[in-house]
Amino acid sequence: MSLKIKKISPESAEFNRFYNFPKGIYPEDSPKWKVPEDFDFKNLIAIYGVEDENNLLARAALYQNPNLNFQNQPTCSIGNYEAENHPKAAQILIDQVSEDAKKLGAKFLLGPMNGSTWSTYRFAESTNSPFFLEPHYLNYYQKHFLNAGFKSVRNYNSKLVEEIPTDSLEPENELIELQKSLKVNVRPINMTDFAGDLKKLHELVHQAFAHNFLFTPLGKEEFVQKYMSTEKILNQEYTRIAEDEDGNFLAFFFCLDDHLNPAEKRLIIKTIARHPDPKWKGLGQLMGSLLYRKAKKDGYQSIIHALMDEDANSSSISTKFAGKPINRYFLYAKEL
């Protein structure tokens, strides 16, 4: 039976059929449904599907983010990838997306990436012990990408602290003195002016991550709109901001509870950002030590440092706090 490929836009009458395709390949209790799928409509070129008669077998989106480049070359990304375990359909789909990316002038195709690192990206090595907000895909997706000529270009990991240490941390009085000497105030995020804090976080995050792998800028209004949606899931007491005497943001910890595993009181540290000025070196360690002490006092049983670049400083912070790897994630690239 012949397979055919179809290309649609978000305005297409078929968009909902393509959007709902994953419902037919994941079980109802899958972690997949805990987080809505994100499409980066600003950078979206088209959505592709491979069909057998009228049945979708695979689906993906092609993105062209003008600020995204790999090895200093123009780069597109393939994201929102979902497929039956049908290698031929997967090959047809990825080949078509690759061909169209090349026509757009791209020298590389990155994936999986829904437009940028601000959205969902990376495949997990294992899906055996998922946690809240972890990317969740079917295990054979990596094989689809490798068979289509992709190679891993960046590795990430998540680490679990099973017993929250306090004995190895700096004494609490020393932490307080260090905080005073740095002249910083560490406080929870302000939920009564959440948008106001997000606007100031926009500047800090762009300063902290400007030189990160595949970083692309995001406008302030887009940033605020995107992260306003986290209001209901973040842990206010543990999402912490360090600011100087003038109220300038210097460091940030974004934390939430593991809503996927309610049987255990577990905290997830999702994002750590610090101002790049060398004089603030150690501020992340200070905030981490204060957070660990509070978590122990509040009865948390474990902490996950989530989705860290294996080459990034946040991974070394996790190691200091005794985190052990529990999963790895891979981002792939294909030369066109």
Results as ranks from 00 to 15, higher is better:
Lys103Trp: 02
Leu160His: 12
Thr75Gln: 02
Ala295Gln: 03
Asp277Pro: 11
Tyr141Trp: 00
Tyr81Ala: 06
Leu182Asn: 10
Lys143Asp: 04
Pro278Arg: 12
Gly24Tyr: 04
Tyr332Leu: 14
Pro276Gln: 07
Lys200Asp: 00
Pro31Leu: 08
Lys4Asn: 14
Ile241Phe: 04
Val186Trp: 05
Leu234Asp: 03
Glu53Tyr: 12
Ile78Trp: 03
Asp29His: 11
Tyr141Gln: 01
Gln207Phe: 11
Lys294Ile: 02
Ile317Gln: 07
Asp95Glu: 15
Ile5Met: 04
Asp277Gln: 13
Glu170Tyr: 11
Ser302Cys: 08
Pro36Phe: 06
Lys107Glu: 06
Leu256Ala: 13
Pro130Met: 14
Leu260Lys: 15
Leu93Phe: 00
Lys103Met: 05
Glu221Leu: 11
Phe108Lys: 11
Asp257Arg: 15
Pro171Val: 07
His259Gln: 14
Ser318Trp: 07
Lys334Trp: 00
Ile8Tyr: 03
Phe132Asn: 09
Asp277Tyr: 09
Leu290Asn: 12
Asn114Val: 04
Pro112Thr: 00
Met191Thr: 11
Asp309Val: 12
Ser116Val: 01
Pro87Tyr: 08
Pro74Val: 00
Asn65Val: 09
Thr271Ile: 06
His211Gly: 13
Phe253Asp: 02
Tyr292Ala: 05
Asn55Lys: 15
Glu174Ser: 15
Lys297Ala: 05
Asp309Leu: 11
Asn155Ser: 08
Val184Pro: 04
Leu104Gly: 03
Glu51His: 10
Asp197His: 10
Ile269Pro: 03
Leu234Arg: 11
Ser119Thr: 11
Glu177Ala: 14
Asp298Asn: 11
Leu331Cys: 05
Leu204Cys: 09
Lys270Ile: 03
Ser314Arg: 05
Pro112Ile: 00
Phe123Ile: 08
Asn313Pro: 05
Asp100Pro: 10
Ser168Pro: 07
Thr239Glu: 00
Glu84Phe: 05
Ile233His: 13
Asp257Trp: 12
Ile303Asp: 00
Asn80Pro: 00
Leu68Ala: 06
Phe254Asp: 08
